[in-house]
């Protein structure tokens, strides 16, 4: 009897050890952690599902349609990517921000980040003569009479032209600690104009690859 108990003990001991070694991370997680993990997975699944549907649709159109629809799809994507990469000019609704007074490169970077977070599609910075398109690899530096953007020295006053939803972009600049606040406290002035025809004419030449 005792021996039987010991055999059972040894057996369950190894079973318990090998069982807990397998899924210890999930087994030891708390219920709330598991719920959030499950939520994450469900959200991710929904996202992937939506992307799958979109791609399936695109595939259907490309397979079923004639060459024109395939060409149109390709052109549409090329346009969208061109706007993002800064290789296409664009005219659309958005805002123009005129800045006078002191402006440092770091303030400008903050403003650009804020605009991007607010859903800006295309951004251009210009002074009286020069215009620079802001893309993913644009850079900013302080210079004696203004700021240097991607190697182009701009003289203050400058104008930032932004394509996007002005009802989102304007509050993004006016939040406490935002562009309007920072420039205002430095003695400068910011003037925001909403427009249906913001013209972004500067382009970034595509690198030859």
């Amino acid at each position: 009897m005792i021996t039987v108990l010991f055999i059972v003990l040894g057996f369950t001991l190894t079973a318990a050890i090998s069982g807990s070694a397998n899924d210890s991370i999930l087994a030891n997680a708390r219920q709330s952690d598991l719920v959030s993990l499950l939520d994450d997975l469900a959200q991710r699944e929904a996202r992937l599902e939506a992307e799958n549907t979109r791609l399936e649709n695109a595939r259907e159109t490309l397979l079923g349609g004639d060459e024109y629809s395939a060409l149109n799809e390709a052109k549409r994507r090329a346009d969208a990517l061109g706007v993002l990469a800064g290789s296409e000019t664009i005219v659309g609704s958005g805002i123009q921000i005129a800045i006078t007074g002191n402006l440092t490169a770091s303030t400008l970077i903050d403003a650009i980040q804020e605009l991007r977070d607010a859903g800006a599609t295309a951004i251009q910075i210009s002074d009286r003569g020069l215009a620079v398109r802001i893309v993913a690899n644009s850079w900013f530096a302080d210079s004696p009479s203004g700021v240097t953007v991607s190697g182009t020295a701009l003289q203050i006053p400058i104008v930032i032209s932004v394509i996007g939803d002005s009802s989102v972009l304007v509050p993004a600049l006016e939040i406490p600690g935002g562009l309007v606040d920072t420039v205002g406290s430095g003695g400068g002035a910011v003037k925001i104009t909403e427009s249906e025809n913001v013209d972004i004419s500067a382009i970034v030449p595509l690198p030859n690859s």
């Binding site: 010991f6 055999i7 040894g10 369950t12 001991l13 090998s18 069982g19 087994a27």
Partner: peptide
């Protein structure tokens, strides 16, 4: 009994039993 314990451990290692889910918190 010590031999029994060893036999049990060896059996467990050989058979690699899967613990039923309802038993997992109690085992």
């Amino acid at each position: 009994p010590a031999i029994g314990l060893l036999v049990g451990i060896v059996l467990g290692l050989l058979l690699q039993p899967t613990v039923p889910v309802w038993l997992q918190p109690y085992l």
